[in-house]
Amino acid sequence: MKKLILGSALMLALSVSFVSCKEATDKAKEATEEVEKAAEDTANKTKEVVEETKEAVTEAVDGVPSFDDAAVAEYVKTYDEYVNEYKEAAESKNMTALAALGTKSQELATKSQEVMKNLSADDAKKLTEYMTAKSKELQEYATKMTN
């Protein structure tokens, strides 16, 4: 009888240890899955931050924001070239060049109406801020030219 009780106690102890190991294995799997998910979330957030930083650096260096619509980006590039040409003409007080830029200004105004039709809200905000800054630049050049 002693052997039977002792054997039963031993079997009970072994079965408890197997159940505990299985629970530990399940918890380890859950922890691994949580770590993998956290790593994936971190990687996604890192990609987003890198893209935002890249855009901010490009904008800071060039002074030209990036746009989702290629037509808007092309318009802004052309407008930036116009501002640079205006600056050169104003600094040299070249009235002939300024007169020629009047035609280019009208073309850009017409093109801006076409471009504005397809803007997203974010692009519209960026374009408005950009155009406001460039208008101030043009005013400064005109003021310097007349002084």
Rank of each mutant, 00 (worst) to 15 (best):
T53K: 07
K136C: 01
P65A: 05
V49M: 09
L98R: 09
F67C: 05
V35I: 07
T110G: 13
A39Y: 11
P65W: 00
A73N: 11
A31E: 02
E34R: 15
T143L: 03
V64P: 04
T78E: 15
A99T: 12
L127E: 05
Y79F: 13
E88D: 08
Y82P: 11
K77L: 10
T32D: 14
E85F: 03
L98K: 06
A71R: 01
A73M: 03
T58K: 01
E30P: 09
Y141T: 14
T132P: 04
K125E: 11
S135L: 03
A31C: 08
K117M: 15
E74I: 03
E36L: 09
V72S: 13
K45A: 01
A73H: 05
E33N: 14
A56L: 14
E81I: 09
V72A: 12
E55A: 04
E36Y: 10
T42V: 05
A70S: 08
K77Y: 04
Q113N: 14
S120L: 12
L108T: 05
K27Q: 13
A43N: 06
A70D: 10
V49S: 06
N94M: 13
T103G: 10
K126M: 05
D122S: 03
D123S: 11
Y82Q: 03
T46M: 06
Y86V: 15
M131G: 05
T128L: 08
V35R: 02
Y86D: 06
S66F: 05
K47A: 04
Y130F: 15
A89M: 03
A124D: 09
K27E: 10
A89W: 03
K27N: 15
S120C: 08
K104V: 13
A97G: 10
E59C: 01
T78N: 11
A31I: 11
G63R: 07
K87V: 00
Q106E: 09
A109R: 11
Q106M: 12
N44R: 01
E48H: 07
N44M: 04
T128N: 10
E140F: 04
A73D: 08
Y130C: 07
N118A: 14
Y82H: 06
T78V: 03
T143W: 02
T128M: 03
V83S: 01
L127P: 14
N44H: 02
D68W: 00
M95K: 15
Y141W: 00
E33Y: 12
E40S: 02
V72F: 08
N44E: 02
Y130L: 07
T46I: 11
A43I: 15
Q139R: 09
A70P: 00
A133C: 12
A38Y: 13
V57N: 05
E30F: 13
D68M: 10
E107R: 04
S120Q: 11
M116N: 15
A31Q: 15
V50Q: 04
M145T: 00
A31V: 07
K136M: 01
M95F: 14
K144R: 15
K144S: 13
Y79L: 13
Q139T: 09
E137L: 10
A43V: 13
D41Y: 05
V57S: 02
V76K: 08
K47D: 01
K117F: 14
K125I: 14
L127D: 01
E85Y: 03
A56T: 15
L138A: 12
S112A: 11
S105N: 07
T110D: 07
M95Y: 13
A109K: 12
E88H: 00
